[in-house]
Design a protein around this nucleic acid. Sequence first.
DNA 1: ACCTGAACACCGTTCAAGT
DNA 2: ACCTGAACACCGTTCAAGT
Lengths: 229, 229
Amino acid sequence: MNGVHLNSVHLNDVHYTETMAAMETGNPRQARHSRDDVAEAALRILDDYGLPDLTMRRLAASLDVQPSALYWHFPNKQTLLAELADRIVARSRTEHSDDLEWSARVRAEAAGLRDALLTFRDGAELVSSTFALGLGAADPVDRLTEAIELGGFDAETARRASVALLHFVLGHVSHEQQRLQYDSLGVVADEVSARADDAVLGGRQAQAEAFDFGVMLFVGGLQRLAARP
Amino acid sequence: MNGVHLNSVHLNDVHYTETMAAMETGNPRQARHSRDDVAEAALRILDDYGLPDLTMRRLAASLDVQPSALYWHFPNKQTLLAELADRIVARSRTEHSDDLEWSARVRAEAAGLRDALLTFRDGAELVSSTFALGLGAADPVDRLTEAIELGGFDAETARRASVALLHFVLGHVSHEQQRLQYDSLGVVADEVSARADDAVLGGRQAQAEAFDFGVMLFVGGLQRLAARP
DNA sequence: ACCTGAACACCGTTCAAGT
DNA sequence: ACCTGAACACCGTTCAAGT
């Protein structure tokens, strides 16, 4: 804008490589990091210590870097979290043998999403919070919408239904994961009430059943809608 | 346990009243606060500035008190938030003319809960986070469960359905409120895309419709379940 | 291209002590 | 019964400067 050709700025830019820096300082430092390195390190902290412990300062320390260095790769923490959410959710891409009936496909997508969220500690809460902020998580909505549209529903109905279903999925799995680490903290206190509680809403099997039931209610609602338009 | 009668401890306890303190210091300080005062002040900050600004330090300042004083009323912030969640949710007690059909009553309960959450800024997010932690929000679950049981469903089915419905409600209203303040921040940028976006998922009316649609899917799923057991 | 150093403006919580 | 004062152990983010 001011007449200076931006392209010329880097003409004699000296690129300090890792080895050059090591030679100068005599200190064979860690490799400098890429955006991808940062995201992967963050996912590791998330899974090992949970969302509350995923701080910029801790992340920086795990990469042997100053906290301020992270802001070269991501403009702020929220953007980093959105990136993590997208990476977690990307694992839910099911090869949903396209010959499935639409309702079975919806159930498969929902189950795949749940599995993906469960592979990372606090995964549901992370995705949930970034989804609520209007960032990321667009992909699962699109895939659910597509599956529902196969049932002959119009675009808006399908979208509304898939967003509703996603809210259920995120809420359910958040709850589920919260309970997991609550249990792992061993609030043993009342053996009896713990058992009773467990019988009602605990146990991996029971959680999976409750999840399927919720998805089924949704699908059932859609089917009823199709039956009497 | 050690033989000392606990009842005798307070026998000659001197109670410093507000006026006594004022007389001594010559400083007519604010009235000392009750647990209820603290909760009400917190609700005011929540509604005026939002959940991220509801810090213990800010709350203390609004009460003309040191942050540490709050810990006499609540053991920690989480407990305070749970109390706020309960207070917000208590406003959803609808006088659901008991002559309503069960499905209408479920819809009324859901709508009442949404209205209650909307009366406070970030209300849904607050209730959602404490619910995910297993604190509070038990009341709405109970009322929804009761309504569903009137439809002839067994206790576990009713409970699972009501928890699922609650997850949808919390997720939907969180999203809705997030959008509200996103809009109020006036990210005017693209007038055009804003309009287009608005047509699809914006507007109070559209949000209310999408909400009702989601609830209807649930109820429809239950009805279908009743039709073919 | 990627990072350091230092600072700014905050957090929640504890605890002895005061009135 | 309710609060102060002071401290502890943290946060996210910015920015000039370095290599």
